[in-house]
Design a protein around this nucleic acid. Structure first.
Length: 586
RNA sequence: GCGCCCGUAGCUCAGCUGGAUAGAGCGUCGGCCUCCGAAGCCGAAGGUCGCAGGUUCGAAUCCUGCCGGGCGCACCA
């Protein structure tokens, strides 16, 4: 409908220009927006106001003459010039009602579009380091990324969901020795735990599994392991130096292959745990992309060579640097350390290059807000490769702060007292968690109140929407109990009976769904969909309270039942994209 | 110090990429179940859109500068 109106306006404009021999600007962007209720029509255009200064004319008069040149259209009931020069379109009731039939015809497909024109887009999200279970902060990235991917897919993008596993580098070694020490403890050795180690309970679990599988295979004595190490932090030393020495010592004592086994076991266990957690949260991926694999295949070296060839690298202070300041970064970045190791950033460069080499036209990175410093440097590297930087979009997801009522819950990873995503899901359920995570703009800090998410009360927005769905189902059950038949075809034929204000408002709301979805996708803002669903549910509940559906008049009754079934369908379609269930009863 | 994000009702937030009287929920106050689920509905009170400039027909929205808050600024990942 929107497109048709744009078309009509441009015809009118042409016709007016011909009649008055006006010289129009080359490009005219005709904008149409939804009238926001109160008497401004279904659609409004500001065309006359935008054109008035260019043509040196009064906007209202211009609008009036434009309207006079508008072709007649069956779906337009009335056109009005209002305010400073808006052209307001009022659609006929038939045109508005047509959406009901369309919803029933398209069912689960209703709202889906080709807006994205099949564009290949890769969405990378969560990508938490495999050093421990996901915590509540990651949960937001998961829910947001999943909803964004689904929304993009629904609007005609070819979406690929990917998790980048940072399974290379120093932190993996810290993980390995953390597991090793717990393992040795279980075997009766005693040794102070490194200040810089991972002390979460899950480390014990991995150590125990390792023990069950391999028995004494990794047994070394604590005394051997501790021999010649510098002082750790609690002994007044440097925790970084200590743990690095510990890693070297462990590798030497165990030998490279046994050491690698421990590391492998630890990474596999944690990655598996993360994957299981996400799957249970309804978050699925097309691929888990390993950083180590990237290093192993030489992709990192290749990327560096390409940068070298482009003259973007230089050596200084014993290390090799990427001249990212040439591309807008604050400072240049090390890609190869003085010890010869490539950095995490070097892998990241190769990884992003790889995304485009795989043929994705758009890459979207969903990052935690604490990673915002990366945007400039990653973008810089792509620019150095000659890729258009607008092909890479970052979405920063702010932290979720947990509350229990008014009490703020502390969260810290290293200390091991963090709240896991799993614990959150168990406490409030997947539906509430998924919805709460995406109901706010991602840039907005999220206050996540556990009590509120759990409460089955009217201040919980998840239930409000789900309840709309359940209520329709309930009406259906009631109908059967009373032995009433719903003649769906008659309902469709009788939609003109839906002339009450509440019904028209509800129909209008239903008609907005495809646009809401498109806007959520286009702006990468799934929360718009959440907000839309709340509005739709609100319009439905209002209608429910104002009118009885199961009336004696069969035409009216069928029409109303057909209408609320359409509501049920749209609520369900929308919730589905957000990963929230649409229960038949609650 | 530099960079990114955020300041909208008492609280938590929308505001659709500049439009016509700034909207929800919670909370407060007052109403609605012999009627399809009250997990609901109706009404009232509550705002200088952080502050100051600028851009233009028009600014919560765009630009600049301040003020306040969060988060980053490693040859860690």
């Amino acid at each position: 409908m929107k497109e048709e109106l744009v078309d009509l306006l441009s015809q009118a404009l042409q016709s007016l220009a011909d009649a008055e021999s006006l010289s129009l600007p080359d490009r005219i962007d005709i904008q149409l927006e939804r009238g926001r209720g109160s008497g401004h029509g279904d659609y409004a255009s500001n065309l006359a106001m935008r054109l008035a200064p260019v043509l040196r004319q009064n906007p209202r008069e211009l609008a009036t003459r434009l309207v006079a040149h508008l072709p007649v259209h069956a779906h337009i009931d009335q056109v009005e010039v209002a305010g400073p020069g808006f052209i307001n379109f009022f659609l006929t009731q038939d045109a508005a009602n047509a959406v009901i039939a369309r919803i029933h015809r398209e069912g689960r497909e209703f709202g889906r579009s080709h807006y994205g024109r099949g564009q290949r887009v890769i969405v990378e999200f969560v990508s938490a380091n495999p050093t421990g279970p996901l915590h509540v902060g990651h949960g937001r990235g998961a829910a947001f990324g999943a909803a964004l991917a689904d929304v993009l897919e629904a609007t005609g993008h070819a979406v690929h969901r990917e998790y980048y596993i940072n399974d290379a580098g120093r932190q993996m070694h810290i993980l390995a020795v953390s597991v090793l020490i717990r393992y040795l403890e279980h075997r009766g050795e005693t040794m102070a735990f490194p200040a810089n180690g991972y002390r979460g309970d899950y480390i014990h679990g991995i150590a125990r599994d390792l023990e069950a599988e391999a028995g004494e295979r990794y047994r070394i004595t604590a005394a051997d392991l501790a021999a010649g190490l510098p002082a750790d932090a609690h002994a007044g030393g440097d925790k970084e130096a200590y743990i690095d020495a510990l890693i070297e010592r462990a590798r030497a004592l165990l030998g490279e292959s046994r050491y690698e086994e421990i590391l492998e076991a630890a990474v596999t266990a944690i990655t598996g745990d993360i994957a299981e957690d996400l799957a249970a949260f309804g978050v699925r991926y097309d691929r888990w992309f390993s950083e180590r694999a990237l290093v192993r295949t030489g992709a990192v070296e290749q990327a560096l060579e390409q940068l070298q060839a482009a003259g973007a690298l230089y050596d200084a202070e014993g290390a090799r640097w990427f001249r990212s300041t040439d591309y807008g970064d604050d400072k240049d970045r090390v890609v190869r350390r003085a010890d010869g190791q490539t950095t995490y950033f070097a892998s990241d460069i190769a990884y992003h290059l790889n995304k485009f080499e795989r043929g994705f036209e758009q890459a979207i990175d969903v990052f935690g807000a604490d990673h915002h410093g990366y945007m400039a440097r990653v973008r810089a590297s792509l620019e150095a490769f000659g890729h258009a930087t607008d092909r890479l979009t970052f979405r920063l997801v702010q932290f979720a702060i947990l509350y229990r009522g008014s009490e703020r819950l502390p969260m810290s990873t290293r200390a091991g007292e963090f709240v896991t995503l799993r614990a959150l899901r168990e406490e409030v359920g997947n539906d509430a968690a998924r919805f709460f995570y995406v109901m706010r703009r991602p840039e907005q800090h999220l206050d996540f109140d556990l009590e509120l998410a759990k409460s089955q009360s009217n201040d919980n927005p998840v239930y409000y929407i789900q309840y709309a769905h359940a209520r329709v189902c309930s009406v259906r059950r009631q109908m059967r109990e009373r032995g009433i038949e719903h003649d769906h075809d008659n309902g469709l034929a009788s939609v003109s009976r839906l002339d009450a204000d509440h019904e028209q408002a509800l129909i209008q709301s239903l008609g907005r769904y495809p646009e809401a979805l498109e806007s959520a996708a286009g702006n990468h803002e799934p929360h718009q969909l959440a907000a839309y669903l709340r509005d739709l549910a609100g319009a439905f509940h209002t209608y429910y309270n104002a009118h009885t559906f199961l009336v004696d008049d069969p035409d009216l009754r069928d029409a109303r039942l057909t209408l609320i079934e359409a509501v049920r369908q749209v609520v369900r379609n929308g919730l589905d994209l957000l990963g929230v269930s649409a229960p038949d009863r609650m």
